[in-house]
């Protein structure tokens, strides 16, 4: 139809999908066939087709997280053919389209795997560890009201842009999922460096990085060994530079803060 390649033919695919009842049970890969998949479908629309078929046949549909389907809410999180969010760089699962696959392909679909992300069901995982890390300090401690005029502190455009780029993290967890060490450093550093770059964040920069890193470790994420898979798989292009910024923020904070604990 509109906008599509008129020569693109519908595809038949074999799906190998991870099925797991809940976090306390063992999971396994189950094979499914889907037919007449349009190349213009999104990956999740292809899964919709599978789920509608399963439901009509009286089977249980595959549970997976998704919501906005425009690449910004960070809900979708599928490990497709051995890659976080599938083969296309800079793309969330929901923005991956079936034109990236070919008729007859076998596609393996797994949930994010990490000790800190237990499986809820099938392909849905619990990423609340990310929320707890933000709760540990990913904010500027101001109450509503009583703030100065927005133009009171000029911020160089270059700094504002870099802070913005760090702030575009969607907390999907692809960094953790693709990291051999299951490290959350890219996620944590994006917030730390956004607030460390902006003058508003300077007041709390030491306690913030100390507390957020402590919580990150407590959640059971691994340590960064600068492999770089996180940034390579990040759908919104969060840079490794943020991790370096966090490292120096942390060392500086530990060396100079008044916190003895």
């Amino acid at each position: 139809m509109a906008g599509s390649n008129p020569n693109a033919k519908p595809m038949n695919l074999t799906l190998k999908v991870w099925r797991q009842r809940n976090r306390n049970t063992e999971g396994r890969i189950v094979d499914y066939q889907v037919k007449d998949i349009s190349p213009d479908m999104s990956f999740l629309e292809m899964l919709d087709v599978l789920n509608e078929d399963l439901l009509r046949q009286g089977e249980e549909p595959v549970a997976f997280d998704h919501d906005c389907r425009e690449g910004i809410c960070g809900s979708c999180n599928l490990f497709i053919n051995g890659r976080a969010h599938g083969p296309e760089a800079g793309t969330t699962t929901c923005q991956l389209h079936m034109r990236k696959f070919s008729d007859g392909d076998t596609i393996t679909i797994e949930p994010w795997r990490s000790a800190a992300f237990p499986v809820n069901k099938d392909l849905s995982v619990d990423r609340s560890a990310f929320d707890r890390i933000i709760q540990a300090g990913g904010y500027i401690s101001i109450n509503t009201g009583g703030t100065p005029d927005a133009n009171e502190i000029p911020i160089p455009k270059d700094i504002a842009d870099r802070a913005f780029e760090a702030a575009t993290c969607i907390a999907c967890g692809a960094c953790v999922a693709s990291c051999k060490n299951s490290s959350a450093m890219l996620f944590v550093s994006a917030k730390v460096s956004q607030l460390a770059l902006l003058p508003q964040g300077h007041v709390e920069r030491k306690t913030r990085v100390e507390n957020m890193v402590a919580q990150m470790d407590k959640e059971g994420f691994g340590a960064c060994s600068n492999i770089g898979s996180c940034a390579a798989e990040c759908p919104v292009g969060i840079s490794l530079e943020n991790i370096a910024i966090m490292n120096r923020e942390y060392i500086n904070a530990k060396a100079t803060s008044n916190n003895l604990a």
Binding site: F79, N81, G82, T108, S182, S183, F221, A232
Partner: peptide, 17 residues
């Protein structure tokens, strides 16, 4: 330990690092 008990069935880490 952080990686968890279950390994990926298919993992193409060579494509990202």
């Amino acid at each position: 330990k952080a990686r968890g008990g279950q390994a990926y069935v298919v993992n193409h880490s060579e494509q990202n690092s």
